[in-house]
Simulated assay, not measured.
Amino acid sequence: MRHAFLLLSCLGLGACTWEPGQGFAVVEPTVRAAFEPLADRTTPDGYQQLASNYQLHVDGAALRLSGIELIAFAGGSGGGFNPANPPPGYSLCHGGHCHRDDGALIPYEQIAAEMGGGGGSSTVATLPVTGPLNLLAAERFAVECVPDCALPQANVSQGRWDIESLNLEGSVRDARTPARFPGERRFRWVLSRAPSDTTPAAVLDGTVELPSDRSTPPRAKLDLSLVLTARLFDTVDWSTLTQGADGVVEISATANTTAHAALEELLATVSPQAEVTRGER
């Protein structure tokens, strides 16, 4: 309530002088997660055309997050390390490290230090997201901040989505003639962490441009979005995957380990989006 009063006072007066401990920006975060069809890939009956000439329809999609972290890196967004835009010699930054051209996995902090950014990063706020999200409903909703939505002085440049589990299921068929397999096959892909494991099943990094300082308006509306599409399945050769006794292709099954690993790698390349709208000073 106190933060809301301060925010309204600032907006009403057109200016605001922050007292110590009140934060340099008051963020109002919302989250949206979706599995969306691509218009240029949609068939007349609602399937999605894949690059492999298979066609896929997702009718179940659930995501569970442990939270979204707002992270500030030393050096800020004006030249510091940004995992969504890695420096020359690096690619595919996810899960706290980047792939170097020689194949080595290098931690974010080491890359930031190499760039002269001081090598440090800090989580200025965590956005808890409760319950599984229905990616087919794709609703946007407001979330809280821990420890506070009144941010300290920082240059927030990254949003890190910590995924506990992802479940995608539906049907797949072959558009080739002759078909590589007849009819349709049900499939399910489950990515999850072990019950006893505290490490996320996957970590997705996205760019956020959110300076929290006295030179920008204090009110900051932050709309965070994660959109998955059929592109995730472009490289899967469904004819090589093993079906279970019930006829369902369980991509997470031991027999389909290669496809499961490939999907994990493709998921890691997905970058969540962030839109920041600043209020009046």
Rank of each mutant, 00 (worst) to 15 (best):
A113L: 14
S165D: 09
A175D: 15
A175T: 14
C149E: 00
G159P: 00
S171A: 10
V146A: 14
R160V: 03
N167C: 05
A138R: 06
E169Q: 15
P128Y: 08
G118I: 02
V172D: 12
Q153C: 02
V172M: 11
A137D: 14
G159D: 04
E164K: 12
L136I: 06
Q158H: 06
N155Y: 11
G117M: 00
L136V: 09
E114C: 05
T126F: 00
D148W: 06
S165M: 11
A150S: 15
E169H: 15
S122W: 08
S165Y: 12
P147M: 08
L151W: 00
P132K: 05
C145A: 15
C149W: 10
T126K: 15
P132T: 06
E164A: 15
G131K: 12
G119R: 07
V156D: 04
A112S: 15
D162N: 15
G159I: 06
A113D: 13
N134F: 09
N155A: 13
P152W: 06
Q110F: 01
E139P: 03
V172W: 13
N167E: 12
E169C: 02
S122R: 14
A137Y: 00
D148A: 14
G120S: 12
V129P: 07
E144N: 13
E164H: 12
G119P: 05
N155C: 04
R160M: 01
S165G: 10
T177H: 14
I111V: 12
F141K: 04
C145T: 13
G131Q: 00
M115V: 08
T126L: 06
I111K: 02
G159R: 13
G170F: 07
T123R: 15
G159W: 01
E144A: 15
V172C: 07
N167H: 14
L166W: 09
A137E: 14
G118V: 03
G117S: 08
V172N: 10
R173S: 15
P132D: 01
R140M: 09
V124H: 04
E164G: 08
M115G: 04
R173C: 09
A112Q: 09
S122G: 08
I163F: 07
Q158S: 09
V129I: 11
R173F: 10
A150D: 09
V156P: 03
A175R: 13
Q158E: 15
P182I: 05
R140S: 13
A154Q: 01
A175G: 11
G131R: 05
L151E: 04
F141E: 06
A112K: 00
T130R: 13
D148I: 00
G119C: 03
P128H: 01
N155R: 10
G120R: 13
D174T: 11
A113H: 07
S157I: 04
S171Y: 11
G120C: 02
Q153A: 14
A112N: 15
V129G: 08
G170W: 09
G116F: 10
G120T: 14
R160E: 10
G119V: 02
V124Q: 04
A137H: 10
I163P: 05
M115H: 01
A179T: 13
N155F: 11
A154W: 05
E139T: 14
Q153H: 02
D162S: 13
V146H: 11
T126C: 04
G119D: 00
P178Q: 12
R173V: 01
L136P: 00
P178L: 08
P152C: 11
T130C: 01
E139A: 12
G119F: 06
A112E: 04
R140E: 14
G131P: 03
S171T: 12
V124K: 03
T126H: 02
C149F: 07
L127R: 04
